[in-house]
Design a protein around this nucleic acid. Structure first.
Length: 710
RNA sequence: GGGCAUUUAGCUCAGUGGUAGAGCGCUUCGUUCACAUCGAAGAGGUCGCAGGUUCGAUACCUGCAAUGCCCACCA
């Protein structure tokens, strides 16, 4: 008849905790000495929280509550991220719905509008974090656009500049034509696409011959400055140093040799187009003998524009221009049929670089005034490059990854890392402090400084007290975007690692292993689930079976199962309370008296010992970040040992006439209940605290700062 | 092309050098007793495939297959 109703009590319990002040480590009782710090990955303030957020809230709150109960000065510092590009994209979609466009809105106004949007979202987010039980210290909450955070970001920028780790250049960047901004290498996704390979003949008058180049981008031919072949390629020995004629504008271009050219690909001859290809740009830079200036033929809207372009191509979009260029070459008999039918290999497949947000094909373009951070060069007077700092910290074990296999991915990325373009041509973000552009920083440049920037700007001495932090818990999908950058920038700016352990969780999947997304309609809202089944049930469903690094599968059925568990706890506790001695005021005195009476049966002692053993095992799991295992053990113990066996077998004793034996049974039940409530608290904080408050306890302590049963 | 991982009951996942575990689901029975958001009993697996190491392998090694992920300037 009696059922637990979390909806009614959870918000009340949260207020009780907040009122106590214990979320703030400075307010914890004296026994809390050593600090334990987790910086919350600031959620993007551009929409409601989803299950991915609920996972991090659950895992981090478990860590924090566990350590707090264990007697640590536990700090969980909450924050919100302005999330530059991400938020701007969300906002642009909103504008689109309203029939407006970012390009028609003055920059300052756009900034203000996005700011209002973000602050409104931030507020919603905060209340949702509370609803999920996050025991973070709201007195230290930070926003990535707080003035004192921006100040720190600028300081790091200056330091990089002074150390010679920053340069500003005209360089090929990844340009998203739709969003009108450059993107860093990690902001691209790749897709295999059919991309016809054209075999184009370039005349070489000096030799009365021609050289054939294989290209997927004939529309860029007017921008060619050279042709490159491999020096060991016998076929082209005589061509090196001679001039070829550009088939689309008749300009003379030099044939050079470079050993990066793959002689086995295509014809072994590569056209060099420095304005529209990163690799070509590099080769161009290495060859001063190329006596031709590089000029672009594609503009920032992805259309043909520039000198020396055939008139038919001007103004066409890249794909249209490609068709047209192919026609011109064909009509002029410039396609070499020797290598493929009609001179075109239609089945050639390559990886197209796409904008990770909108899927538009990335246009490699040359953009001036872009800031790049050097990843592999040593700073002035310094010993280690940013890359080396990070790699050394992980290799030496100063930073540990859970699971460990992510270290390999990390090293692999670091080994091949390129300089980092931190300029973005969008309105929403931290303005880069220079005079030449209106550009803003890549969000990851500022969030890469988050652990120290948040602590330095929160409260006086926080940095000294809480840095380096203990655990960085976040999604494995942002290992390279964020974690890697935090390690580099944290070490560089402070000389210390930003955190000692990196715990990475996977991506939430639905029961069919699909990613959850709005467009698929398979999204489960953690807030809705909380309303329906209680936050504790949601949290348990997100931790049991969720091993680090692998993708957890979440379904409403699973959540319902843990709602049943919460109800089980509720009723078991009710049973124990109902069977306590009448008018019991102080359980501690009762426990003391019971121990003195020494009426425990062998079976009682055995039960208490079994609990102690389970607690020990489970504690070990907690210390090893095996929360999935700890949670499962608790679940099993509470339901199938305590409720099914111990409570059941106590019934005759509680109803019997032997008062001493009855008292012993009461004592054992109460003891097990108390201890399991503490053990369960990190996982299911609301129901455990709720029950705790109904136990006749003279001390009237909060469960959240009770002592862990050792 | 290079790398990382996964493969155990219908589903989601643990696990260990000594002939397999949990939850959900399923079957049968029960229940005015704290709880039907319940209880009891039960069915169900040649631990991806093929070799090897071993007294013994699901576990360690090798190869293969399927699946997933990451990285990459073959134009």
């Amino acid at each position: 008849m009696s059922q637990y109703e979390p909806q009614k009590t959870e918000p009340e319990i949260y207020r009780l905790w907040e009122k106590s002040g214990f979320f703030n480590p400075d307010k914890l009782p004296k026994r809390h000495k050593k600090s334990f710090t987790v910086i919350m990955p600031p959620p993007n303030a551009n929409g409601p929280l989803h299950l991915g957020h609920a996972i991090f809230v659950t895992l981090q709150d478990i860590m924090i509550r566990y350590k707090r109960i264990k007697g640590f000065k536990a700090l969980w510092l909450p924050g919100a991220d302005h999330a530059g590009f991400e938020t701007q994209v969300v906002f642009e979609k909103k504008l689109e719905k309203e029939g407006r466009s970012r390009f028609q809105i003055p920059r300052e106004q756009l900034y203000q509008e996005i700011m209002e949007f973000t602050l409104a979202n931030k507020k919603v987010m905060e209340s949702q974090l509370k609803r999920l039980g996050a025991s973070c210290d709201w007195t230290r909450e930070k926003f990535t656009l707080d003035e004192n955070v921006i100040k720190i970001v600028y300081q790091t920028f200056e330091k990089l500049k002074n150390d010679g780790l920053l340069y500003r250049g005209k360089r090929i960047i990844n340009w998203c034509v739709k969003h009108q901004t450059s993107l860093s290498d990690v902001e691209l996704k790749y897709e295999e696409r059919k991309s016809p390979l054209y075999y184009v003949k370039y005349d070489v008058p000096e030799l009365h011959s021609f050289i054939t180049v294989a290209t997927t981008r004939p529309e860029t031919i007017p921008a060619d400055v050279a042709i490159a072949v491999n020096p060991i390629d016998k076929r082209y020995e005589n061509f090196i140093g001679k001039y070829a004629v550009n088939p689309l504008n008749n300009e003379k271009i030099l044939i050079i040799s470079d050993k990066t050219v793959d002689k086995d690909f295509g014809t072994g001859a590569l056209k060099i187009t420095p304005d529209h290809d990163k690799a070509d740009e590099e080769i161009f830079g290495k060859h001063p003998e190329i006596n031709k200036e590089s000029k672009p033929v594609i503009n920032f809207f992805g259309k043909m524009e520039g000198e020396k372009i055939p008139a038919e191509l001007v103004g066409l979009k890249v794909f249209e221009a490609r068709q047209k260029a192919m026609e011109i070459l064909k009509n002029n008999n410039r396609l070499n049929v020797e290598f493929a039918p009609a001179g075109i290999d239609e089945n050639y497949i390559n990886n197209a670089a796409l904008c990770y947000k909108c899927g538009s094909q990335i246009e490699p373009l040359n953009l001036a005034n872009q800031w790049f951070v050097k990843m592999t060069e040593k700073p002035k007077g310094g010993k280690f490059s940013l890359r080396d700092l990070a790699v050394r910290a992980v290799k030496s074990g100063k930073i540990k990854f859970i699971p460990k296999r992510f270290e390999k991915i990390f090293f692999h990325w670091m080994a091949n890392i390129k300089d980092w373009n931190i300029s973005r041509q969008i309105a929403w973000g931290i303005k880069i402090p220079d005079e030449g552009t209106a550009d803003v920083f890549d969000t990851w440049f500022s969030s890469g400084q988050w652990p120290f920037a948040a602590l330095m700007s929160a409260k006086k001495d926080d940095f000294q007290k809480f840095y380096p932090t203990d655990v960085m818990e976040t999604g494995s999908d942002i290992l390279l975007f964020w974690v890697a950058r935090m390690i580099m920038l944290g070490l560089y700016a402070t000389g210390k690692v930003p955190f000692e352990t990196v715990y990475l969780h996977g991506l939430v999947r639905d029961i069919n292993r699909q990613k959850m997304s709005k467009s698929k309609g398979n999204v489960i809202s953690p807030l809705e689930m909380s309303e329906k089944y209680g936050t504790d049930a949601v949290r348990m469903s997100l931790v049991v079976g969720n091993t680090p690094g692998s993708d957890p599968v979440v379904s409403e059925d699973k959540i319902r199962g843990y709602r049943n568990f919460a109800n089980k706890i509720w009723n078991a506790a009710r049973f124990v309370m109902m069977n306590l001695p009448e008018n019991l005021k102080d359980i501690d005195a009762f426990a003391k008296k019971s121990r003195k009476n020494n009426a425990l049966k062998t079976e009682d002692k055995k039960n208490l010992k079994e609990l102690a053993m389970m607690a020990k095992k489970m504690t070990k799991d907690m210390d090893n970040f095996k929360f999935y295992s700890a949670a499962e053990q608790l679940y099993h113990y509470f339901w199938h040992v305590f409720a099914d066996k111990i409570i059941e077998s106590s019934k005759p004793r509680l109803n019997g006439s032997d008062t001493k034996d009855k008292s012993a049974a009461q004592y054992v039940l109460l003891e097990i209940l108390k201890k399991t409530l503490i053990l369960l608290h990190p996982f299911m904080p609301f129901i455990t605290e709720n029950i705790w408050q109904t136990i006749p306890n003279k001390q009237k302590n909060l469960l959240m700062i009770e002592k862990w049963p050792e």
